[in-house]
Simulated scan of single mutants.
Amino acid sequence: MRVLITGGSGMVGRNLLEHTASNRFSIIAPSSQELNLYDFDATKKFLLKCSPDILIHSAGIVGGIQANIREPFKFLVGNLDIGRNLICAARDVGIKRLINLGSSCMYPRNCSDPLSEEMVLKGELEPTNEGYALAKIVSARLCDYISRENSEYQYKTLIPCNIYGRHDKFDPSQSHLIPAIIHKIQVAISNKKDSVDVWGDGLARREFMYSEDLADAIYSAIDRFETLPSIMNVGLGYDHTINEYYKEVAAIVGFEGQFVNDLSKPVGMARKLVCVKRLNKWGWEAKHSLSEGIEKTYKFYLEKHNK
């Protein structure tokens, strides 16, 4: 089977390429120079040339809370253009199977209950990443509309919870929570500091899944595509507070200092936990515990980013 992966140089794409299941497929993972997703005609031409059996759309402009607050225009327009061009070009050239990766940012803010797939567009979005969320919602709706209009086209969306792991971004200006914590604590250790700042009170709850597990779920989706729901969360079904993530990282890297909560900083949504009932019914669950995932991520950080 010929599998085209967009975003092959990103964290999700690289984890897909490194996964043992990749050996069972003919993988096409073009660079941004080879496939310019901002150019519709070029995208259409590339898809016609490679003619994949299934398309995995994992490309996108991503970043943590600081980046989203700083550059909302880029996160909205860039991801909107990428998603629209790829999905519409795939339809135009006759690619019948596509798996689109959404984001749990697509869900309404401040929901205490787990976020079920039916809740997309059922409430106000979190302002700190609204642009990114809007773009992801449009891509998911495009997939749904295409499949509704012509059942031969099965364009489905997976909505992962927050992801961390190998090939993550560790620069605090761009990174998500766990890689940012790893970097901050490692810098504190290197500089012999006895404290690390935490944005907000640290009581907001987040769900983070190790990136290798997401890759495993995507390959399971390829293998069992016919049974895959049209839209489905991929997550753990449980979460931790931000303070707990700091403590877990500290225990693994050996930091014995204190954490100082900076209440002047934004924290985003109070909780963002996806509902995994549909996922469990489909028959998949993550394999890595939090400590296992952080240990592997920290090892990667030391090898690649702390030289």
Rank of each mutant, 00 (worst) to 15 (best):
L4D: 06
G7R: 01
G10L: 06
V12C: 09
E18P: 00
S26C: 10
I28T: 12
S31Q: 11
L37Q: 07
P52I: 01
D53K: 08
S58K: 02
V77A: 13
G83R: 09
G83D: 05
G94N: 12
G94M: 13
R97M: 04
N100Q: 13
L101M: 15
S103R: 04
S104W: 04
V120Q: 03
P127K: 10
Y132D: 00
Y132S: 03
L134F: 11
A140D: 11
C143N: 06
D144V: 01
Y145A: 13
E149D: 12
L158Y: 01
G165W: 00
K169V: 06
S173N: 12
A180S: 15
K184G: 09
V187I: 12
V196T: 08
G202F: 04
M209C: 10
E212T: 11
D213L: 07
Y219R: 05
A221V: 12
I222V: 15
F225S: 09
L228C: 10
G237H: 05
Y238C: 14
V249R: 02
A250R: 06
V253C: 15
F255S: 05
F259E: 05
V267K: 03
M269V: 14
R271C: 15
V274R: 00
V274Q: 05
K281F: 08
G283S: 06
E285H: 13
E292G: 06
E295F: 00
F300S: 02
E303G: 05
H305V: 07
H305K: 12
